[in-house]
């Protein structure tokens, strides 16, 4: 009871740890989120369709890195934006929201996973993943930069991305086959497409831009460019553990 009084002042929030971080607090925070936040941030917190609230599942928050800072943002809002504070909420409710937000990124402690981070790192190099993926500034450009992939992807998602890369490809990584008016063809990653133009990175990592009117056709290639080499269960677990360890806070 005494503890509650101390934290209820709110002013102390700058320096304190989140006192409501148990499993039940996650659920209570989720309920708060569902009733107060989804109209801007979306039911799955990946951003609002109509109200443009930012994606809260990326593992990093633009306006704060600490729990206390997130508490302040939720309580006070962000001046000059549509983010208004939950001024009438109890401190406990706001802490529970912070706790819930912390669960959204999918980040886990890689040491708790069955695979070996070290073996995963070796497998990553043996499979030449760096040909397309950058990690800490080294590697290719034809796949997503994995330097902080552990912040936003949980182990199940990472495992699926390894074994079924074509299951869900984000629009940024769609591959397209572009046929010019003269019949020549170029394939590449769809970096940007708008009403009038298309921008791709081809297999040699060149940035190319086309006026759509100058093209005969643009087709999406549904197959991911990621190779699907058969992995043993152990290799997969090791790679998952290594990828889960790639976090923004330990570089």
């Amino acid at each position: 009871m005494l503890l509650l009084v101390v934290f209820a002042t709110g002013v102390a929030a700058e320096e304190v740890e989140n006192p409501y971080s148990s499993a039940i607090d996650v659920r209570m925070g989720q309920r708060q989120f569902q009733s107060k936040c989804t109209s801007c941030h979306g039911v799955d917190a990946t951003g609002g369709e109509e109200a443009d609230g930012p994606d809260l599942t990326t593992g990093s928050f633009r306006h704060s890195t600490t729990d206390a800072g997130l508490f302040r943002v939720i309580r006070d809002g962000i001046e000059g934006t549509s983010m208004r504070g939950l001024r009438r909420a109890k401190d406990q409710e706001i802490w529970q929201l912070v706790t819930y937000l912390r669960t959204l990124s999918g980040a886990v402690d890689p040491a708790s996973l069955p695979g070996s981070m070290g073996a995963g790192r070796v497998a990553f190099e043996r499979l030449d993943c760096g040909r397309c993926h950058m990690v800490q500034g080294r590697g290719g450009r034809l796949g997503p930069d994995l330097s902080r992939v552990g912040d936003r992807r949980g182990p199940e998602e990472l495992a699926e991305a390894l074994t079924e890369p074509s299951a869900e490809v984000a629009p940024r990584w769609w591959t397209v086959r572009v046929t010019r008016a003269d019949g020549t063809v170029v394939e590449g990653l769809r970096m940007g497409e708008d009403t009038f133009n298309l921008r791709i990175m081809d297999g040699e990592e060149r940035l190319l831009s086309f006026a759509k009117t100058s093209l005969r056709s643009v087709e999406r290639i549904l197959e991911s460019t990621m190779p699907t080499e058969p992995l043993s269960g152990e290799e997969r677990d090791d790679l998952v553990a290594y990828l889960a360890s790639l976090r923004g806070d330990d570089s």
Binding site: S35, V43, E49, E193
Partner: peptide, 18 residues
């Protein structure tokens, strides 16, 4: 009173590009 009252939620299953 004065709080969001939605009775549910909505999301798009795929990115707008689809």
């Amino acid at each position: 009173e004065g709080s969001i009252f939605l009775g549910g939620g909505h999301r798009m299953p795929l990115a707008a590009d689809h």
